[in-house]
Simulated assay, not measured.
Amino acid sequence: MADIRRRKFVAVLGGMTVAWPLVTRAQQPVKKIGFLSVSSPGAHAPFVAAFNEGLKEVGFLEGQNLAVEYAWAEGNFDRLATLAAGLIHNRVDVIAAMSGDVSIRAAIKASSTIPVVFISGSDPVQTGLVASLARPAMSPASA
């Protein structure tokens, strides 16, 4: 009888050992990225695909350990401030601002504590988006 209980105990312990990595992986904190664009989803589909592929390459998978909240202004520049505020309200960890300086400025103005990541075709120091490239914090001129 003791032999049977020992086998059950070992079997349960073995099952826990196998299941434990799955449980800890499932409990990873989910990071939230806000994706702000003046454009529309259709126009940015290739960029979104590349964005997600890059995140995947460094271990972030949407629906597993990453949530991306997309905010599309659909060409309406006046909506950017409201969309950026919505991303802040939803507690994103970082904002990826796309589609030019207008989106970037809206994201920077929405919060001084949430990092804004962007690509700019112009010199971000010269346009006042950042104070310097050495320490690319928000420029006082962009606030």
Rank of each mutant, 00 (worst) to 15 (best):
S132H: 08
M98K: 03
I88L: 03
G14Y: 05
I4V: 15
S122N: 08
T113K: 10
P140M: 06
G34F: 05
K109M: 03
A19H: 08
E53A: 12
V38F: 05
Q27W: 06
V58K: 04
V58Y: 02
R7W: 03
G42N: 13
S40Q: 15
I33H: 03
R6E: 11
A45K: 09
F9R: 10
A11I: 09
L61P: 03
M98G: 05
G121A: 06
V92M: 01
A143R: 09
V92D: 08
A67H: 12
Q28G: 12
E69C: 02
L13W: 05
A107K: 00
S99H: 00
V116R: 09
K109N: 12
T24C: 01
V125W: 10
A19N: 15
F60N: 15
A97V: 11
A71R: 11
S132T: 10
V130E: 09
A81M: 07
M138K: 15
E74G: 11
I108T: 08
L83H: 15
A106E: 04
T127E: 12
L133D: 00
I4R: 13
F47Y: 14
V116L: 02
F118R: 09
S122G: 13
Q27G: 09
F118T: 03
G54L: 06
K8V: 10
V94C: 14
A141K: 08
K56M: 01
V30L: 01
G54C: 13
F60V: 13
V92C: 10
I88F: 12
A96C: 13
A96T: 06
R25C: 01
A43M: 13
P115L: 14
I33L: 11
V94P: 06
V130R: 02
Q126W: 02
P46R: 07
D3T: 01
G15Y: 06
L129M: 04
G86Y: 04
G15A: 04
P124R: 04
P115D: 12
P29W: 00
S37L: 08
A26H: 07
V92K: 04
G100E: 12
A49M: 07
V10M: 10
R105Y: 14
K56N: 13
L80N: 05
S40H: 09
G14H: 12
D3W: 09
Q27F: 14
V10N: 10
K32L: 01
I88G: 06
A50D: 05
V117L: 11
R91Y: 02
K109F: 02
A131W: 11
A67G: 01
K32D: 03
H44N: 12
A107G: 04
G128C: 08
V48I: 15
K8N: 10
A85V: 02
I108M: 10
E57H: 03
P46A: 00
A49T: 14
A67I: 08
V117H: 04
P46S: 02
S99W: 14
S142E: 11
V92Y: 04
A131D: 09
E53W: 05
L66T: 14
R91L: 00
D93A: 07
W20D: 00
L36I: 07
V102G: 08
Q27R: 14
K8G: 02
A43R: 07
S99L: 07
A50K: 14
P124S: 08
Y70F: 14
L133C: 11
H89L: 03
L129D: 14
G63P: 11
G86S: 11
E74D: 11
T17N: 00
L22D: 06
K8S: 14
P29I: 05
G54H: 15
V116Q: 04
F118H: 00
K8Q: 13
W20N: 01
R105D: 09
E57F: 01
